[in-house]
Design a protein around this nucleic acid. Sequence first.
RNA 1: GGCGAUGUAGCUCAGUUGGUUAGAGCACACGGCUCAUAUCCGUGUUGUCCGGGGUUCAACUCCCUGCAUCGCCA
Length: 636
Amino acid sequence: MTAYITTPIFYVNAEPHLGHAYSTIVADTYARFKRLCGEDVRFQTGTDEHGDKIVQAAESAGESPQEYVDRISRMFSDAWPHLDIEPDNFIRTTDADHKENVQRILQQVYDQGDIYFSEYEGLYCKGCERFLTEKELQDGKCPDHLTEPDRISEQNYFFRMSKYQEWLVDHINANPDFITPERYKNEMLSFLSDPLEDLCISRPTSRLTWGIPLPFDDRFVTYVWFDALINYLTGLGYPDDEKFSTYWPVAEHVIAKDILKPHAIFWPTMLKAMGLEPYQKLHVHGYWNIGDTKMSKSLGNVVRPRAMVDEYGVDAVRYFLLRDMSFGLDSGYNSEAVVARQNSDLANDLGNLFSRSLTMVGKFEDGKVPPCGTMGKLDLALQESCADMLATYRDEMEHFRFHRALQAVWKVVSKANKYIVENAPWELAKDEANQEQLHTVFYTLLETLRILQVVVSPIMPATARKMAAGLGVDHSDTLEIAGQWGGLKPGTAIQKPEQLFPRLEKKKDAPRPAKTKDRQKPKGPEQQLEGIITFEDFGNVELKVAEITGAEVIKKSDRLLKLTVKAPEVRTIVAGIAEHYSPEELIGRQVIIVANLKPATLMGVQSEGMVLAAKDGKRLVLASLSDTVAPGSRVA
RNA sequence: GGCGAUGUAGCUCAGUUGGUUAGAGCACACGGCUCAUAUCCGUGUUGUCCGGGGUUCAACUCCCUGCAUCGCCA
């Protein structure tokens, strides 16, 4: 049996974020699971590197497109090892073999008449240098440039996608697992209930040169999907390499829902046009929201996988992402949830189970796997729950329901903890007569741990390695073999390793590293957007009463006033209140200021703090106290 | 505007073809144990199952309708 699993190739106009990491961890976990099942697996990820956005991003970074894509692509390939992600292939759309492959396919499809030259009319924004869709417009204008786009027509090449619509609908209906989970299948079927348009696949070189030239017309380059999607074939050495014949028939793609249409509609029809079989399955997952806000660059709440790993460790991150998201649905990320998972599931339940078990074997069994005696009711029950769990686990993992697979696994963890209490080995150990029963208890327990180690390995490879080392077992067996009861050899030496998972403090606001440079970028998404802060968070903000002793207009600005305040030391504060207060009326007033704000220079004036005011629609009203107090009094 | 999804305990969610007192984990409270990472085990509290109407002997479950959130499409 073979398996081929891919992530999307990620567009290199930004650094890797949580969403990229999730897709890739999912694919990696699935690849490891399939390997565990004894299958011959190929796992591919990579980067998508052509297009106008790349050219723009490179320009603003002061680099050539090639330098730029090399740099960002490396950020992706470098990020994955930190997450224990091990792809077999990392493909880049700027690779020579990919370009060649795309051109060969284009030529083939062109020759057979499925690509034609035609005119395209649309709304073109000169500022953006691209066509805008009706949807993007606000009041008929480009939202970025606030200009009305021109209705212009452009000649381009089109792929006859519509020709394959009927076939695709039939294919989706005939293969219920082609697009999963089902909601996305339904969405696509609904989309396909209307006539499909043909797909524009080129851009004139007058507008874009950073792309793969069309082999039959060098005035054009390939546009987006006909370039990007083909990576899944290039990575297998299509058409001649034997990897292609081995792995393509079992191809499964993991994507996020934003690129559903290209993968569910464009790609199968492209493959059909090439005369190839479509992929087997498309696994579509949802978004990670930050708190309850979408993650986006412009909000500045992008979560960087590296930062998560540094804070929680790889396995905690992998576990959390797979355990907390129902595959297919959106989920909310927040640091408290990560800490809760880490502490309760990982440290308390699994980590402590492992720790207490090995310690006792050290103490009561001389650090060796004991022989198993006659199993009683409790022992058999635990053995049976392992077997039940394995069946569920297999099925859920197979269907990308990782959260459910993990639930099933943790049921066993919980039962094992209960098993210990029920048997109270420390009591049994007090009497020689109980020796056989004691042996049986520990054998059963260690076997359970061994099986847990096996099933946990695709999700948390490092933890599984530690557990295997502690139990003195090799972890190279397949699930079939490793899942069978009785794998541990009596007499094997047990070695208790370092604790598997540390317990974390609840307070998520450990002293933040003072990043002095990036003042524009609001960082630490958790602190920023979760709505709730701890008392300590609040304590970090030093609020004081200040008396305004001087105020003057800053000439170059119509919003800013330069205030001199006494708190009780004299400071200068620049406040954006000129439209609401005149300098005269401010003198002598007491206001509340944030006293420990990092100084900032506004319009050439250094501001040492911030004045609090309420915003009521367009009105701005300064915060004040109900009575006069000594300047500098702390507000809390 | 069209199509669809979702709305269940303080939080995150399970609830299979309608069938007794609606479940799990987390959190919280109390009790037990002492092998363990102050962990583990037990017990317990909390619900207008979004609102309204209907079908039925019986509705969280089916139908209609309203509200809210989200997705796809136009």
